[in-house]
Write a protein that binds this DNA or RNA. Structure first.
Lengths: 201, 201
DNA sequence: TTGCATCGTGAACGATGGTTCACTATCATG
DNA sequence: CATGATAGTGAACCATCGTTCACGATGCAA
């Protein structure tokens, strides 16, 4: 996608691919990128050999060197708090304990103020947003027609698509069971949905 | 020391909150958690003072200490490679540079070998998996009925629900447009779908 | 006043980690 | 055969980092 093609040249050797797999495994096990010596110990080879492997993988684009530490690219997730309720407006008002944190791809909403929200109900199933899904939201007061937003209706948070119903601005559910909510004065847009997470555990 | 987010025990001092904010800032700037000396340099104080601050923030639950490194909670995304094709057991078939990496919540498939796959087509829309969605898959050869799996049919990767069709084991689409695929000899399970990611950018 | 927690200085220790160097072995290729 | 890429041994260098210790200053509460 973005920084993709570092080396179109050679494919990896069996051994090199093995090292990459081990690097993934060790990263997953510890939650931290392994050191050169960890990799060396895993294969029972010398540190220098492991170091050469890692350096090669970096040159080929399979690994990423940042600040003298090699790691898998994209391991820097931005922590997004999963809020039980919708954070309303000013940050000072929202002294709410997050339900947890979600590591989010850094290119989602660069610099924007993000939070996450667990979706209740089935009003958006036709848009692929199911009950218990977690949506990542960028705090913003405005959105364009067609975008999926988090709106505050009577103090309750709702995920709907912004659109028009009979010429009037409205919140459109993506489920024939529900009817559009025509926008009135008391409706406020809390944010714009950037992404959807679902765990099938 | 692992439980209880921010509101535990005493509230933070002004200074401590300052340190926490700086820690967030430095983490965002570098893409890596700052060292104790980085924090010390930022405030132009001694290393020991910065170290005491960080240790306190960890004890209060604002930071997370793991393997002698303090960092923000939730930034511990396990990087999962997004593969263009399905990595199938034998290393030969997987000579492919990942399309990108996805930071994944660490409790998804602890220690398992994970990869991600971009879904093509609309055969699973009724299960909330749309075209271009990214599914996180745990490499495993077996799965239970009802679980969503990645299967290799004629060398092509397909996401389907495992189940039965007329008493026979089959791959069931979640879209009335498509018909079940009765399992034959040449079908292999590549992995089990753990989660779904969607970006609405 | 006496504690106690907070916040700072200055220095040092020990461990870990990245990096490099010299040397050897294997193997495919031109 | 010669060459270059790959893969490994063994050892060492040096920077960085977490951690600790001793000590001083401030401010607040019992």
């Amino acid at each position: 996608m973005r920084d993709m093609p570092p080396t179109r040249g050679k494919p990896l050797t069996d051994r090199q691919h093995e090292v990459w797999e081990a690097f993934k495994l060790l990263t997953a096990r510890r939650g931290l990128p392994p050191s050169v010596r960890d990799v060396a110990a895993h294969f029972r080879i010398q540190v220098s050999a492991a170091h050469r492997h890692l350096r090669l993988l970096v040159r080929r684009g399979w690994l990423e060197a940042r600040g003298g530490v090699v790691r898998l690219p994209g391991s820097s997730g931005v922590p997004v708090p999963i809020m039980g309720r919708v954070p309303a407006g000013a940050p000072r008002e929202t002294f709410e304990v997050p339900e947890g944190y979600l590591p989010c791809p850094p290119d989602w909403g660069r610099g924007q103020d993000l939070f996450a929200l667990r979706v209740r109900g089935d009003s958006m199933t036709d848009a692929g947003i199911l009950d218990q899904d977690v949506v990542v939201v960028a705090k913003t007061g405005h959105a364009r027609d067609g975008e999926i937003v988090v709106a505050l209706v009577d103090g309750e948070a709702t995920v709907k698509r912004l659109g028009k119903s009979g010429g009037e601005p409205a919140l459109l559910p993506a489920n024939p069971k529900y009817k559009p909510i025509v926008l009135q004065g008391e409706v406020r847009i809390a944010g714009k949905v950037l992404g959807v997470f679902r765990s099938l555990a």
